[in-house]
Design a protein around this nucleic acid. Structure first.
Lengths: 347, 347
DNA sequence: CTGAAAGCGCTTACAG
DNA sequence: CTGAAAGCGCTTACAG
């Protein structure tokens, strides 16, 4: 298929400068207004068919492409959204980004992304940068301590949707899973399979969504709960310490629930290095998917977030908020527990 | 640190409309020209210090942020680059994206990305879309059969850099590794470790960079080469067939070189399912990194591309091309072989 | 030292 | 059925 992009008839003289409405207008001998109307299919019934045809032909011959920057300035709308994730190189972020990209395209939107590295300050910088570029709205995975940023966005009345993370005390658009339920599914599964002593490895954080995972687990484990806390900047070290503590406990663990994919990977490495067999000696359930779980000698059970639904819902909610700024919606989806051999003791 | 973004003094009346140069000009009682000069630090020495101070204060009080769309239209420059990858959800793409994002930021550029899904037509669509949005340049990982797209970009004289993939017969900016050498490192390593019969699993493709990997391998293996070809749309099926053929050969393989990360993962799954032990029965070397390789019972040896260097070099080359369009440079970097237990037989 | 004016490339209400 | 004109929010050469 010869694409329009590669229709290069008569364009040789236009290599340096993009052709504008004015060029077409001059070429045909009409006003730029008329060219604009024709190419945008406006005032259709009132325009002379021959003139319209001539304009369309000229546009094609000259390989005209409208300048979206000019259009954006006039329309006060860029059809661009800003996406702020923790780190685009992290599979969770990049998978979400891909889903949002595709869904955005169906609405005619492009995506500018930025990585916050879990830093509140970088988040502020990215918000500024994206707003300066006049994005029509934002989808943000917030790091800790960003209440001020949320309040600012509310105050200036810019459409935005929080994804994955949100503040339960601040009324905003958000799309996330029910992390309490998700954790309970994991723990309940381990208990149902006869595990008595279950360790939970979790980030030490103020982020609500992560603490909900702990709360869900503790709610079922009660005073039996063994929690290992991990600092975001000392993951490997703290995971190792947590597991070692779980194992040296007077009542050592027979199962571990890791509350994120990075924690799971780090934990599995340590368990491997100790020569402990999964699931026979310790059962394991992780959180979020990675290739590594499939390939592990005991394919890893994990809490699977509905990424496609999360991405699509956040984009749809953003669009509807752009179109009607008073809209506020809290979307909470359920995660699914994918059970494989890491948590099932073979007979 | 209270960030300027959150300086909301006196902004309550400006919640709906962004404040413009004109607002500041009216507020202070000067022309927009003067406001522009002051805020851009131009004509510094010629402007009355008191007036300048007043303007700066007003800008801060009103929480002024320049509209980059207007600036872009006037300057004919957006400080935005377009990045076209195969799939932002693929770790190789997202890691490169992250590196380019960071490097771009240091030059004041933002990144709009798009995924081509290895489709020439989607690549065309993305090029159109990004050029319509007036990006200052493009970084592209090309799919097959996109010679026309490359020639078009050359013809309209837009700055671009090909990353990872390129056409050796078309003279363009490109940044890639030497794939021939990379493959030779993998094969040589396997040969040095006493492997006599080495299978190579590779995509059936016209992409130069992938075929260079085959060429590098075959160059060392000569008539002894066993190649398994894999269609991009039937990866698992073809990988399985290749491995089965390698094993049922009269002279069966004792080592396999997989020429991409997806091929490696698919292959390891099949080898696992056959109950074949790595490296004792078959040694394995992969291409490109993934978490899964670390966690595998025999951590997987692999060809490691210098992602940071690839990303940084492509961004730097693009910037220098934006600044001087006659610049053409072919950057070829060397990959490194990371040797771990999957390819070393323990004594 | 400062302002009026033009212009970037569009869109659209208005006039005829 | 069509065009002149204003305007989106900036920048900058020019004039004074």
């Amino acid at each position: 298929m010869p694409l329009n992009l590669f229709n290069t008839k008569n364009t040789s003289t236009f290599m340096k400068k993009n052709v504008s409405l004015k060029d077409i207008a001059e070429h045909v001998g009409v006003s730029t207004a008329l060219v604009s109307y024709v190419l945008n299919n406006k005032l259709k019934d009132r325009i002379n068919k021959d003139v319209a045809a001539k304009i369309k032909k000229a546009a094609e011959d000259l390989n005209y492409r409208p300048n979206q920057i000019a259009r954006s300035l006039k329309a006060q709308k860029t059809f661009t959204i800003g996406l702020i994730v923790a780190d685009i190189a992290n599979p969770f972020s990049s998978q979400i980004a891909r889903i949002i990209e595709d869904e955005a395209k169906t609405y005619g939107y492009s995506v500018i992304f930025g990585s916050s590295d879990e830093s509140a300050e970088k988040t502020s910088d990215l918000i500024k940068l994206l707003l300066d570029r006049q994005v029509d709205g934002l989808i943000i995975a917030l790091p800790e301590h960003t209440e001020a940023q949320v309040h600012y966005l509310q105050k200036i009345n810019v459409p935005f949707v929080l994804i994955d993370r949100y503040y339960p005390t601040i009324q905003t658009n958000s799309v996330s899973i029910n992390n309490f339920n998700a954790a309970q599914k994991a723990i309940q599964h381990l208990m149902d399979n006869g595990h008595k002593r279950i360790g939970v490895v979790a980030y030490k954080t103020s982020l609500f969504h992560l603490n909900e995972r702990i709360r869900g687990a503790v709610d079922l484990l009660a005073e039996n709960a063994l929690i290992g806390e991990v600092g975001i900047n000392s993951i490997n070290q703290d995971v190792i310490a947590s597991i070692d503590r779980f194992l040296s406990d007077p009542d050592p663990v027979d199962a571990i629930f890791f509350t994120s994919n990075l924690l799971t990977i780090s934990g599995l490495k340590h368990i491997n290095s100790l020569g402990i067999r999964i699931p026979d000696q310790i059962a394991v359930v992780g959180f979020d998917e990675t290739d590594a779980f499939d390939l592990f000698y005991a394919p890893v059970s994990f809490v699977k977030q509905p990424l496609v639904d999360l991405g699509n819902a956040s984009l749809k909610l953003l669009i509807s908020t752009i179109e009607n700024k008073d809209n506020i919606e809290v979307v909470e989806l359920e995660a699914e527990l994918v059970i494989r051999s890491s948590s099932i003791i073979q007979k």
